[in-house]
Amino acid sequence: MNGSTPGMDINARQEQFANAFLVTVAAVAGFTAAKPDVDNDSVDWTIASRLPRRPKIDIQMKSRRVEDADRDGLIRYDLKRKNYDDLILTDLFTPRLLVLVLVPPDIGGWLELTAEQLVLRRCAYWVSLAGQPPTDNETTVRVSVPRSNLLNVASLEGLMQRANDQEPL
């Protein structure tokens, strides 16, 4: 692995990178992204819009290093029990999403920056776990994120519109 340069460990870098990814997409969609002030480890970001009902979406961020070859229909992720419990809630004022950012295994492949363009690899997927059944698992719960739920500007705008209309995401 290329991450032997001095500084943060690879997981901390990955988390920062995932944050940058989300903030970038939100910025282009015209939404603000803010980190909550409260002691709550199940909401990492709140994306807010100026749509008529001032909807917001609370986001739990996760990221994973994956081989490019991994291209079947679902991505599986082992979510901490506490995160799962907080993501299946339905009596929320603001809907919640799990956003999973996938990055190449080698840190050298995450970013490509030239005078012409900035490329962030690879992409992010979203899933709503609202209303999923409670679990008896003690530490983690395996969740499936569909490959069709690509998080891009268009899908984030669509999700925000649904939040505005108070429809399930």
């Binding site: 909550p36 409260v38 709550n40 709140t46 809630l89 009596d91 929320l92 004022f93 603001t94």
Partner: peptide, 12 residues
């Protein structure tokens, strides 16, 4: 007050 995320909203 009975929203699960009432605390987050009050913080905002």
């Amino acid at each position: 007050r009975d929203f699960g995320d009432f605390d987050l909203r009050m913080s905002e």
